[in-house]
Design a protein around this nucleic acid. Sequence first.
DNA 1: CTTGAGTCTGACGTAGCGTCAGGGTTCACA
DNA 2: TGTGAACCCTGACGCTACGTCAGACTCAAG
Lengths: 332, 332
Amino acid sequence: MLRIGELARRAGLTVRTLHHYDAIGLLRPSARSGGGYRLYGQADITRLHAIQSLRHLGLSLEDIGRLLAQGGATLPAILEQQIRALDRQIEQAMQLRTRLGLIQAQVSGGHEPEPGDWLATLRLMTTCDKYFSTEELKKILGNWRVAAADMVPLMADVRRAMERGVPADSLEVQPLAYRWMTLVGTWMEGDFDLIRRWGDMYRREHSAMSNKGPDPRMVAYIDRAIEIRLAALGRHLSLDELKRLTRIPREEWQRLSQKAGQLMRQDVPPRDKRARALAREWMGLMDRLANHEPELRDKLLAAYRDDPVLAAASVLEAPVRQYLQRAAESRA
Amino acid sequence: MLRIGELARRAGLTVRTLHHYDAIGLLRPSARSGGGYRLYGQADITRLHAIQSLRHLGLSLEDIGRLLAQGGATLPAILEQQIRALDRQIEQAMQLRTRLGLIQAQVSGGHEPEPGDWLATLRLMTTCDKYFSTEELKKILGNWRVAAADMVPLMADVRRAMERGVPADSLEVQPLAYRWMTLVGTWMEGDFDLIRRWGDMYRREHSAMSNKGPDPRMVAYIDRAIEIRLAALGRHLSLDELKRLTRIPREEWQRLSQKAGQLMRQDVPPRDKRARALAREWMGLMDRLANHEPELRDKLLAAYRDDPVLAAASVLEAPVRQYLQRAAESRA
DNA sequence: CTTGAGTCTGACGTAGCGTCAGGGTTCACA
DNA sequence: TGTGAACCCTGACGCTACGTCAGACTCAAG
């Protein structure tokens, strides 16, 4: 017969724990000394070992009590339930872990070291949590830096247009609409559903984002321009075709435009070899844009040539486009 | 100013929760009505939103209180700590999940449906837990069925030898030692360290395994025979060479032995084509056993030919071996 | 004035013990 | 036989983040 301290030491527990087990009836010593000391016999020790084994599996003391009382008949059921609970817990913990990682990257990422602003960042993140899965958040935040860098000058341009009183449905705003759409498209990796939901969240929860996002008036302004642009695109291409378009970095169009501008300034005729090479480059870009589908490419060329809304948004201005057009035709 | 119920509804909390936040000083309403009702103002609502965001990250109310009191200076540190804690928790949960899965497979696997024995199984499992990592346990339990199936007849043979009074160091026991070693080797996938630790556990914790394992007297008996066999092997091969040996299924040796026996019974001379083919097969097996290292193979052949202890353990009995030997030589 | 819905404070409960406080027991040693 | 050290007893409160009563009070509408 062991006294409580001895048993505790052997089992690697505290005396208090054994007191507790006694109090809740999980392990009552089978005898007491004359002075009232608990005395544990072999059967008690065996039972304690069983208790420890089951505790080791994460079972609650109550479950253990029931299991031992029943002789273990429900062990498989309890294991099953325990495993399911554990799986849920692991799932949740991993989701939380991902979220914390994302927030840590944002907060201590250094790109917004304003001290008082962490709460706003947090607000933004937790608001986003309601709208997007962790996977989607990873996508959005992964491209956040790049997008934010491009966003700043674009927002400045939009603001200037608004302040100059340019109406949102003016053709002059179309290049901005185009840049905005491209930027958002890059940011969300072309996921149309994600873009739509981002807009939803923005409209519904702008107040929650305090001063983090762009001014809602600005968003309304550019939204109107985008609406016009989408309508124009819709007149020439189906939604499915739109989705098949590949994104081409803006710089490539700009390089093309600049090179064409140089040739034009030097009065190089469109039938010149250099102009024709540039036209081929142009067609190559269009071909990539059109996902290497010739009909789609031709539709796009026609749309950008004929629709003033789309033409206005093109990086290539009208004279440049006409020049390249002539160069392309002179190839024949 | 909102009353508590209204705020609770908007925030998706219970009134009691807000009472609690008030009681611990986390969110005290900035005013009370004449009748003592709590009245929450805009600042309170903002603070509550912050609290909810932080709760969403798994922070304790105490941490949140400190964070809000400080203005969030220690947010990165708290995030860091939170992430570390979460990682530990996930790690532990996944380990536990693996253990539970293994135990479930054992308990409800049906191969031991005795009702009263689940406690012993549990004892065994938790004892193993102390000695082996979950990865190692997976390895051991994965091969358990196969090993257990082969173990039963082997143990019966060993028991018979003991009961017949055959001394452990008799050559007669060597085939059993060989079978035992092969079986354990297959079971533990040739992991020598694992085999050693399994033996350690067995010797130290046999009492804990109650009647699950083999009789310790039997283990001592076969251990002695294995010791002799290892000493014999050690006389011919280094430990490193031993480890390089590949395991060949016993059935392949037996097939070879039977086919040779047939030829011998039919008085087919060793120089016969069929005998020579069989000798080539033998050499092929030896070659595989020796990890395709010719010197190692020759060492093995010499060892099994010259050392009576090893020869006694071979599946090929002496006459068969000599027959094959002659067939192999007649090939030249 | 009544009524019903909302609110107040206070208290106990949760799981598994830790950590005292204030006393009694055991046992070796003097 | 006394005594000191080590051990043990019971009882109580503490921890998280609230849930769930109970009994009394307030507020707005009819």
